[in-house]
């Protein structure tokens, strides 16, 4: 299994997509620190922790990485070589899930480090030192790691279900970036929002959990958000795996 996970890393490392996506994730993370600090929106330690937790927004980028991790194999038919080398499709899927969760963690580390490097000195000039004793900061950073790790797997699952690279990327990004948030604007239906990927992500990463931040919709408790996101990660991946298990590769 270790060999298979290493092979998945090498697949990612030997093409250039990971680099551009990492750049995009870093740019987004930087923006999420620079914009609120420059506009003076950050006035409490709690605001600062929330700002760092918002690096989890890069989940869309890690999602795309996961989608590409599966769909390029079908697009360029490298799946043939992969399955010939590893006839057990369960082993292949498991290795991919481990590898892309770890890639999510690596992206999270890069984003968090960049945010802290920009944010901490800046906060110090505003005399808003973040005290290590406050539980908000570790929670914020942990949320970023957990969310990005799980979204690597969400991407794999969606890729395995849809298979077509363009369709999976476009539909996935459209849903995550726009459609799911429209739900918040629809009466009644909006109470389902915490169960969507964006809502469960917010449930994990929200430091201030007051309902008025989310238009009156109650977030799930953190563990509930993690549970729902785990379902979003594993249900598509397992369905995709089972569905592809007996399919012909031609």
């Amino acid at each position: 299994m270790i060999n298979l996970v290493r092979a998945e890393f090498l697949k990612v490392r030997t093409t250039q997509v990971w680099f551009w996506l990492l750049l995009a994730a870093l740019a987004l993370s930087a923006l999420l620190v620079i914009a609120p600090l420059a506009s003076g929106d950050i006035s409490t330690e709690r605001d600062a922790a929330q700002m760092f937790a918002n690096a989890s927004t890069a989940y869309i980028i890690v999602f795309v990485l996961g989608v590409l991790g599966v769909t390029t194999e079908f697009r360029y038919q490298t799946i043939t070589a992969s399955v010939l080398t590893t006839p057990s499709r369960w082993a292949l899927v498991t290795a991919k899930m481990i590898a892309f969760a770890l890639l999510g963690v690596a992206y999270a580390a890069a984003c968090v480090i960049l945010q802290l490097a920009i944010g901490l000195p800046w906060l110090a000039t505003k005399h808003l030192g973040v005290s290590p004793a406050s539980p908000d900061m570790p929670r914020a950073l942990l949320a970023v790691f957990a969310i990005l790790a799980l979204f690597g797997i969400v991407g794999l699952g969606v890729g395995a279900l849809l298979r077509n690279q363009i369709v999976a990327v476009v539909l996935g990004v459209l849903f995550l970036a726009a459609l799911q948030n429209i739900v918040l604007a629809i009466p009644v239906v909006r109470y389902a929002w915490p169960y969507l990927p964006g809502g469960s992500t917010a449930s994990i990463s929200a430091i201030d959990r007051s309902t008025d931040n989310f238009g009156g919709v109650h977030l799930l408790p953190v563990w509930g958000g993690v549970g729902v996101l785990l379902l979003w990660a594993f249900v598509p991946a397992v369905i995709g795996a089972v569905y592809s298990m007996n399919r012909d590769i031609t």
Partner: peptide
């Protein structure tokens, strides 16, 4: 099996290294 089973952005050597890695 197919002459097209390669990722176009990967080098020939890296394609083989990926397979080596998976097969130990």
């Amino acid at each position: 099996l197919e002459s097209s089973g390669f990722h176009p952005a990967r080098t020939g050597r890296n394609h083989l290294r990926v397979v080596c890695r998976a097969a130990g």
